[in-house]
Design a protein around this nucleic acid. Structure first.
Length: 463
RNA sequence: GGCGGCGUGGCCGAGCGGUUAGGCAGGGGCCUGCAAAGCCCCGUACUCCGGUUCGAAUCCGGACGCCGCCUCCA
């Protein structure tokens, strides 16, 4: 049974999908007004891993993640650059998918854009106005949070205590500082959509309710996002669903953030590193490994040192892949357990790692178990237990593949000249002419090859 | 003010009552003509002060330090 911490109920609970064979999953996506940063990288990796794992276990997952392509930040950027909102959104959405591809994050099954759902949002807002759950003030239409009896559920606080701590000044017109904008009336030069209550554009919290319920249906299974969305964004989504009498997410899951020193990485603090920069200088797999080495709910530290640490661990995994000629599995269709039949130690490993991941995605312990298996398989290989070693090694590759991490055995093609040097060295070694053999190795090294001996003779690869 | 979280060996990062987490780095050994890769062994850590317990990093109380949310944020 798959278990996952549920933010609303505050404990690890069975996932319990609406339909036993399927899982509907919604992840709040990016607002495309700037380059993606490491925080975006983490949440996409975390939920990509979850999606892959659930699929590995046999669930048919429908994964929806939106693109917010209209909001204040986009408008401001367009204004600053003298371009249009659509142009800004398009440009940064392209950057987004480029980064996702580089990270190996699988495309969602649906990627709804806010601007495509405005009509449905208008309908919802109109119904709130009709039911007196929303009210109009000079700059827009607001949701009356006092109309939802359990407002504050996700925050773990009552409406009163939230109100008492509100740091934002209540505008004179808002009934409560917690009330949030459903609709912002158009200002001159801003994009707007027609609405019976006044032309304008949707507030951020409305799109996700409309799109998640619209695509996944009432009572969908799992709603995910970064911890900072828990309140107020997800709370406000919930409040709207409640007010509309529609069953919302059965399960809420939130990932911890990326830290810089002792501070959360965030746009407002300006202490962020763009994903684009990171990917330009490191193997993207290192970030995935770094992410799965800690628990998804814990904060993680992403620094040049921790990235380098993960890269070195990757070197070892790739050497392992080379030794056992392991296949790359993460790139195409998701890895599915049903496609493999393991026995012996390999089967035990799948069992162990499976139990860990089923229990609130305990990737750090799973990774630890996988590294232990790497050592075991190597040891078995050294003891000439080839079959047992190979089957265990394949299980390691399958499980890493199930988490979206490829082990790369690829040895770059060498040209004729290099092959000749390799052959000459093997001949020299065979004749015990060590001096010549070493000279040939130096020659290969000077051409940028890493030289390793094996039972089959000299092996070269690119460093 | 309310709510939540954290403080672990050189670094990263698990554990949440008794057993080696794991990785990276470092040291020693084996293997190897040498090197690389691989294997084996090694660090004996849990902010502090009390308490509960046969036994606590793990539970309870207190102290100190730090972080987050209650405003846009993944």
């Amino acid at each position: 049974m798959l278990r996952l911490y549920d933010t609303a109920r505050g404990e690890v609970l069975d996932l319990d999908p609406r339909d036993a064979r399927r899982l509907s999953m919604y992840v709040c996506g990016p607002t495309v007004y700037d380059l993606p940063h490491l925080g975006h990288g983490r949440y996409t990796l975390v939920w990509d891993v979850a999606r892959r794992w659930f699929s590995f276990r046999g669930l048919e997952v429908r994964f929806v993640s939106n693109i917010t392509d209209i909001d204040d930040n986009i408008i401001n950027r367009a204004l600053r650059e003298g371009s249009s909102e659509a142009e800004v959104a398009r440009r940064f959405e392209d950057e987004w998918w480029r980064a996702m591809t580089a990270l190996g994050v699988a495309r969602p099954d649906d990627t709804p854009h806010a601007t495509q759902f405005v009509a449905s949002m208008v309908d919802l807002i109109a119904s709130f106005l009709r039911d007196d759950i929303a009210y109009t003030i000079s700059d827009g239409v607001y949701f009356d949070t006092s109309r939802v009896s359990d407002y504050g559920l996700l925050a773990g606080q009552s409406l009163d205590s939230l109100r008492a701590g509100a740091r934002v000044e209540a505008s004179e017109e808002k009934r409560s500082p917690l009330d949030f904008a459903l609709w912002k009336f158009a200002k001159a030069g801003e994009p707007s959509w027609p609405a019976p209550f006044g032309d304008g554009r949707p507030g951020w919290h409305t799109e996700c309710v409309v799109m998640s319920l619209g695509l996944l249906g009432d009572d969908f299974d799992l709603h995910c996002g970064g911890l900072d969305l828990k309140f107020p964004h997800h709370e406000n989504e919930r409040a709207q669903a409640e007010a509309a009498h529609r069953a919302f997410a059965r399960h809420w899951a939130h990932n911890g953030w990326v830290m810089v020193g002792d501070e959360k990485m965030s746009k407002s603090l300006g202490n962020f590193t763009s994903l684009t920069d990171l990917l330009a200088q490191t193997d993207a797999r290192a970030y995935r490994l770094l992410v799965i080495r800690s628990h998804y709910r814990s904060p993680i530290e992403v620094t040049p040192a921790t990235i380098a640490d993960a890269e070195r661990a990757l070197v070892r995994l790739d050497a392992f892949a080379r030794r056992f000629a392991l296949p790359r599995l993460a790139g195409g269709d998701f890895v599915r357990q049903g496609d493999y039949h393991f026995s012996g130690r390999a089967a035990e490993l799948v069992e162990t790692v499976g139990a860990l991941l089923d229990d609130d995605l305990n990737t750090p312990l799973a990774v630890a178990a996988l590294f232990e298996a790497v050592s075991s398989a190597n040891a078995l290989f050294d003891q000439e237990e080839q079959e047992e070693a190979s089957s265990l090694a394949l299980a390691v590759a399958v499980l890493f593949g199930a988490l979206g991490l490829d082990l790369v055995a690829t040895v770059h093609d060498s040209d004729d000249e290099v092959r000749a040097l390799v052959q000459a060295r093997d001949a020299a070694r065979g004749a015990r002419r060590w001096g010549e053999a070493d000279r040939l190795r130096d020659e290969l090294v000077s051409r940028g090859w890493i030289v390793e001996d094996s039972a089959d003779g000299t092996r070269v690869r690119r460093g």
